[in-house]
């Protein structure tokens, strides 16, 4: 168990590799109750979100969610989040646990007009079910048909008297969902899904495999690929930055200026070794051109993989070296993701 922003959470249950492979082959269950939730309500909720987010929440239908970074004026990143349209004038933001207080303060200080922001994190538990067997398991456990939802859509669903919010999305690239529940129901829900899923090979998954799974599908993690020092333009999230939406938003000017010195690249290590955060990235001449932000052993590939920032003018090479304990090990740049889940 480790302390994770005040939450005592398991790095692993049976082992990172076993949990990772079980999720890819069958299904994994993740207790992600540590995630923060901020509720925005009021007549001006949407216009506030439009100003706070570079994505375009006006495109959301009821029951639809979208991903967005949350930016400072200089286009560095406060956090990355999912925004759910619960009702007209009612939106839920799901944010990173370690950033929750900072996010809440940032949102509140930027609110205008008729809009109330509430930190409702304590009211929600959250469980993610991911993997090819997720659909069958959810059917067995809750009698809910996940395929009735499109990707990044959600619905409310009553289970044993409790109102759940089931969203078809996840952090592994696999088929699956994230389920918000009243916090008092979390344990019962966890046990019900686990019991229903065990015959299908469902296993509980800790923070360790959560990280290796997200890295294989090249999703960014706040504190590594995204932070309050680096410009968001280099973070490979430009499809979530809607510069052409009519409303002005925080960070827009800095995005338009566009002077970003570095960008993310994705590397597979061709020699034996495991890249880790902060290891130096070198060009083939041995000059330092960047830094690893996330690195691990990929259980699916059986190789070391890395996400790294490279200086813009050095970011298009085919091969690099990653310096591991003084030695430059050869790495090949790939187009993300590292692993394509079977859909």
């Amino acid at each position: 168990m480790v302390d994770f922003s005040g939450w005592e959470m398991p790095v692993q249950y049976q082992g990172i590799i076993a949990e990772h492979k079980a999720t890819r082959a069958r299904a994994g269950l993740f207790d992600v109750s540590h995630m923060g939730e901020i509720l925005l309500t009021g007549k001006d909720a949407l216009s506030n979100l439009q100003r706070l987010l570079p994505n375009d929440p006006s495109k959301l239908a009821l029951g639809q969610a979208q991903y967005s970074p949350l930016l400072y004026d200089n286009a560095t990143v406060v956090d990355d989040l999912s925004v759910y349209k619960l009702a007209e004038e009612k939106y839920l933001l799901c944010v990173n646990c370690s950033n929750k207080d900072k996010d809440f303060a940032w949102v509140r200080q930027n609110l205008q007009g008729d809009c109330l922001a509430q930190d409702v994190s304590d009211q929600y538990g959250q469980i993610a079910l991911q993997g090819p067997e997720a659909v069958e398991i959810l059917q067995k456990a809750l009698g809910f048909d996940l395929m009735s939802l499109k990707y990044w859509w959600f619905t409310s669903f009553t289970w044993e008297g409790a109102e759940l919010l089931i969203a078809r999305m996840g952090y592994t690239g696999e088929k699956g969902c994230e389920i918000f529940c009243p916090s008092g129901v979390t344990r019962k829900l966890w046990e019900a899904i686990l019991a229903a899923g065990e015959p299908c090979g469902l296993v509980p998954v800790g923070l360790g495999a959560r990280d290796t799974l997200r890295m294989e599908v090249a999703y960014p993690l706040y504190g590594q690929e995204l932070d309050d020092r680096r410009h968001v333009l280099g973070a490979n999230v430009t499809r979530f930055l809607k510069l052409d939406k009519p409303q002005d938003f925080i960070g827009k000017q800095a995005l338009q200026a566009g002077n970003n010195p570095e960008r993310l690249i994705y590397l597979v290590l061709e020699e034996k070794g495991i890249p880790r955060p902060h290891y130096p990235l070198l060009n083939l001449a041995g000059q330092r051109v960047g830094e690893v932000t996330s690195g691990t052993y990929s259980p699916s590939l059986g190789q070391g993989i890395a996400i790294a920032y490279a200086r813009e003018e050095e970011a298009s090479q085919a091969e690099y070296l990653i310096e591991i304990r003084g030695k430059g090990l050869k790495a090949r740049r790939i187009q993300p993701p590292f692993y394509h889940p079977s859909k």
Partner: peptide, 8 residues
């Protein structure tokens, strides 16, 4: 350490 994948 958990799952060991490489020994140098």
């Amino acid at each position: 350490l958990g799952d060991i994948v490489f020994v140098e």
